[in-house]
């Protein structure tokens, strides 16, 4: 993918994506498939797509203060040093949750969705209601996800742009002192890296 030049004025689809879309359109027009039925199948696997590098990145930041600092300063470069991410995209900004501030990410689906970090985007993430409400009423949206925050916690909503994608660095759960990176990574959920959830608590059923 390194030869893939990115033009920010318009969207790009890879040759493979173009062929997949062509097939899907033709099959839909001819009545062989229904997009909703395809979505249902894909949705069943949405947690099983992509290498889920985000969880490893978060776990490393929890255990390695130098890496965490580097990550917050330049997400793209810090993730690049891990060597297991093929393409992080143009500019990855990592935003840290603290007791005073909760971060939340919105974005429309485009060909540059950072699934390399987060896996496949969930269906609700692509939906217009989430996108519009997340900005206007983040606390209400979080409540829908079962996330309640103290009144004094500021909520910042980050809207992904052509150049910039965001990854939330959630707070490390209590009771995980001495845990290994691999153990910690198990606690990091996709939603906690979008900001619509918390990491799993130690001992909670997975």
């Amino acid at each position: 993918m390194s030869e893939h030049h990115h033009d920010h004025d318009h969207s790009e689809l890879s040759e493979t994506e173009l062929r997949v879309r062509a097939l899907e359109t033709i099959l839909t027009e001819k009545g062989y498939v229904e997009p909703a039925a395809l979505d249902a199948i894909i949705q069943a696997y949405e947690t099983r797509i992509g290498p889920h590098n985000g969880a490893r990145v978060v776990a490393k930041a929890w255990t390695n203060p130098a890496f965490k600092q580097a990550l917050l300063e330049d997400g793209t470069q810090a993730v690049g040093t891990l060597g297991h991410v093929s393409r992080v995209g143009d500019h990855l900004v990592v935003v840290e949750n603290t007791p005073d501030r909760h971060n939340m990410v919105v974005c429309t689906l485009c060909s540059c969705y950072p699934w390399e970090m987060l896996g496949l985007p969930p269906v609700w993430y692509k939906a217009a209601p989430y996108r519009s409400r997340a900005v206007k009423d983040p606390r209400g949206v979080l409540a829908d996800f079962g996330v309640t925050l103290p009144k004094e916690t500021e909520i910042r909503v980050w809207d992904s742009t052509a150049e910039t994608r965001f990854l939330v660095l959630p707070m490390r759960p209590d009771g995980t002192e001495g845990w290994s990176e691999a153990q910690l990574a198990e606690l990091v959920t996709r939603d906690s890296m979008i900001g619509t959830g918390f990491p799993k608590r130690p001992g909670a059923p997975s």
């Binding site: 899907e24 395809l38 894909i42 099983r48 797509i49 992509g50």
Partner: peptide, 20 residues
């Protein structure tokens, strides 16, 4: 637990074959 995919389009291609 079942099939795993490396990229979203792979799941799309899988889903199309399943449906057909």
């Amino acid at each position: 637990e079942g099939p795993v995919f490396r990229e979203p389009w792979e799941a799309q291609a899988f889903a199309m074959a399943l449906t057909l």
